[in-house]
Simulated assay, not measured.
Amino acid sequence: MSIDIAGLRPERVAVVPSPLAELGMALHALSEPSHHPGLQGWVTSVTAGLDPHLADRMCEADFLWRTTFSDLFLPCAGIPGGPTLPGATLAEELDLLDKLTDEQFADAALEFTCALPYTTPGPSVLDDAELRRRALELAAARGPQQLRFSKRLLDDPPRIRAWLRQFLEDCDEAFFADVWHRLRHQLAADARHKTDLLRHKGLAEALTAVSAAVKVDEDGGRITIDKLRQGHSVIRDRSLLLVPTSLGWPHLMVLHRHGWQPVVHYPVGSPELSAPPAVDQLILRMTALSHPVRMQLCRNLARSTYTTSELVQIHGMTAPEISRHLSVLKKAGLITTRRRGRYVLHQLDVTAVARLGSDFLEALLR
């Protein structure tokens, strides 16, 4: 994913925590705890103490936060005539949510259940009969509960907006106020740190600190985010907003909706000890292991070191064939080689292979 930052002035970059965005990540973690193993204790505690009526309402609209992160949780990005920053309190952010038009609200709410244009201008689902039909068809495929909610949204957007605001306020009273009181100082400190980097070291230094998956080409005027999806946004006369999240790891979200301010929603305090491999490297490794001969070679190399000649004898292949397969594994970073006298010994990097599962899952969720 890329963001065109040609002409972006330093003062047009802001790092600000968002209580509404953090509430959105809290709802996502409660709905998909497998994405956030580090929060399992918190999820269990909150779920056990949740009022049954609130839990039912949480399920009613969970498509806004279960699959991924709805842009409705960053309404400041959609306010026309910006830049608009997130509010300091949840109430201020809910006021910003109220300022979105019904068309903006409905299109963002149905992003995951309707094939609406995202990066290009297009008709609103409230105005286009074919988009409405398609939205309800896709909602029906996800169950009667989502179909009912989608019908209510399309028929009476103000009613659903009021419902959502009341629901979020009830979540704040039930569990989120305590969470935000605990996390807001950490997020504010991270925002101050990134702002200092922006002022004294520049945009590239600040974004490198945001995530190892973010690269900046200031000469080319582009930010690139290493994710398993495609997307492009252009700053032009708008601003770039960076929003830290404590509950969000491993998700690195990029809001690039047409007409909205671009936002990078990034996790702080990541538990990873080292930067995960890039998506291209992950694909290279999985492709290398997809060949049956290379899998057989890995079986040997996981147990001991072998020379090319020994592998030729074991597998009944020619030396050039074995060398080609070893070269693919080495290029993918899956084997190590070392010289002992006139012999070159190959061995599987067990740690790299063991990380493949977690690397793959993190790349999917990033």
Rank of each mutant, 00 (worst) to 15 (best):
V43C: 12
T44G: 04
T47G: 04
A48C: 05
A48L: 13
G49S: 15
G49W: 06
G49A: 15
L54H: 06
L54W: 08
A55D: 10
A55E: 12
D56N: 10
M58S: 11
M58R: 13
E60L: 07
E60G: 01
E60I: 00
A61M: 03
D62Q: 09
F63P: 00
F63N: 01
L64K: 02
W65Y: 15
W65M: 01
R66M: 00
R66K: 11
T68Y: 06
F69D: 07
F69W: 13
F69K: 09
S70Y: 08
D71A: 14
L74T: 15
L74K: 09
P75F: 05
C76H: 11
C76K: 01
G78I: 00
G78A: 12
I79Y: 04
L85C: 11
P86A: 06
P86E: 11
G87M: 04
T89F: 13
A91Y: 04
A91F: 04
A91S: 11
A91V: 11
E92A: 15
E93N: 13
L94G: 13
D95V: 14
L97N: 07
L97A: 15
D98K: 15
D102M: 00
E103A: 15
E103K: 08
E103T: 07
E103R: 15
Q104V: 09
F105L: 07
D107L: 10
A109K: 09
L110I: 12
E111P: 00
F112G: 03
T113W: 10
C114A: 15
A115R: 14
A115N: 11
L116R: 05
Y118W: 09
Y118P: 00
